[in-house]
Design a protein around this nucleic acid. Structure first.
Lengths: 229, 229
DNA sequence: ACTTTCCGTTGACCTACGTCAAGGTTTCTC
DNA sequence: GAGAAACCTTGACGTAGGTCAACGGAAAGT
């Protein structure tokens, strides 16, 4: 596989001069993680970060009694594990492959050198981190200010928008994982999906699929203007 | 006042060549916000960011029914409002002065130009954003995986460490605001402080002061290994 | 100094959501 | 393709923490 060609499709490196892509290609190390394999653990030192070329990764925290909060699910083209690269500290969370995953690993020192000579990479990375801060802000808002039905509604709208506003939403993950993204547990999510189905707001027969039947109701739930019976 | 001199004390610009400091000084605009004044609102377009030279700012989200979640309290030397500078989108949260505050405002375009010529500023900014992501990660963990006593304990330890491990902690903010940082409400916080006092873990007679009496108990609470009676 | 507003505390009450348990079903694994 | 493991759902139950209300004290604006 031509690594430089793969890199040229990564948003982070859009518009980068070919010569730098070549440099990066020499730096990057291909890695593979089997489904279920840990990529890094909280507290590990970070000597570089990954870019996903195929597969899917979850980044998450756990509580002592085993509850899990997913921070991100990353897929093709997305970088992850950059925080320790720039703080010089350790990973603040866990990362695990939830499908067989290929990544390109960028060692810290080489990447820092590239940034020093090529500011557009720095600007791209600043943009990536800023987007992530924005998403975290919205996750914090969810956890602190919204109830679970509102979070679910907002998440469904988010998925719907991402797929050009379709009403047929492919979750792409298990409902257990969806619960963990929403900051709740499978039992609670299951009950809420059942209630929303009963009120004809959604249909959720299949396992990884939800169909929006009453978009207005979903929007009102997400805005906190409506409650389930 | 010599703006360049002020800028030289900002961590973000540590080690920057004097010539660039001069450039920045010409770019920067002094601003003043009275206590209670809004610096920006969620949804405002961001044409630049601020650096605090004196005072204190809270960055927060609100729910439709008025509950507030504080994301950060920023003070001297800290930058805030950078996210829209790099995403090109709007502010994801509110910012309000909680004391009379002076800032230096850095317009977006000029700052971007500086980054393009001076990569060390980009690296500093990457570090600032990464630190912030780390703190958000820990706030998300708190909200999702810990109960309020555990969050409070962790916050007290954080303040204690920041002041060289002292047992006499100066909160510097009202307890209402502390509640809003911890993702709860004043009533609940008040009850928990009372319980911790009853168990001789802390003393909290004065308004903005807490004294740690049993540090081990606090550490156990923060780790989730202990519960209040 | 006076008044109005904000802050902190406590009590009685309620509810969203987590826990525990048990069932059926789908999906890995060997 | 058989067994094991993980997933999904529903019921009964418990509780952390939010809501509403009331009151004393501090602080801020006039």
């Amino acid at each position: 596989m031509d690594i430089a060609k793969q890199l040229s499709h990564i948003p982070l490196f859009q518009g980068l001069e070919p010569q730098y892509l070549e440099t990066l290609a020499r730096i990057a190390v291909k890695k593979f993680f089997k489904r279920g394999e840990t990529v890094f653990a909280e507290g590990d030192p970070g000597i570089g970060f990954h870019i996903i070329t195929s597969g899917r990764i979850k980044v998450y925290k756990t509580s002592p009694d085993g509850k899990e909060q997913i921070l991100h699910i990353m897929s093709q083209g997305e970088p992850f594990g950059e925080v320790p690269v720039f703080t010089g500290q350790r990973f603040p969370a866990y990362a695990e492959a939830i499908a067989d995953t290929n990544t390109l690993f960028m060692p810290r020192d080489d990447f820092m050198n590239l940034i020093r000579t090529e500011p557009s990479v720095a600007l791209s990375m600043l943009s990536v981190l800023s987007m992530r801060l924005k998403r975290f802000t919205s996750l914090i808002e969810d956890l602190s200010l919204r109830e679970v039905p509102g979070r679910l509604a907002a998440y469904l709208l988010y998925l719907s928008e991402r797929d050009q506003g379709t009403d047929d939403i492919n979750l792409e993950i298990s409902k257990t994982q969806l619960a963990s993204i929403l900051g709740t547990i499978p039992e609670t999510l299951s009950r809420i999906l059942a209630r929303m189905t009963r009120e004809a707001i959604i249909e959720s027969d299949d396992k990884r699929h939800v169909r929006i039947c009453d978009r207005t109701a979903i929007e009102e739930l997400a805005a906190g203007e409506r409650r389930l019976a």
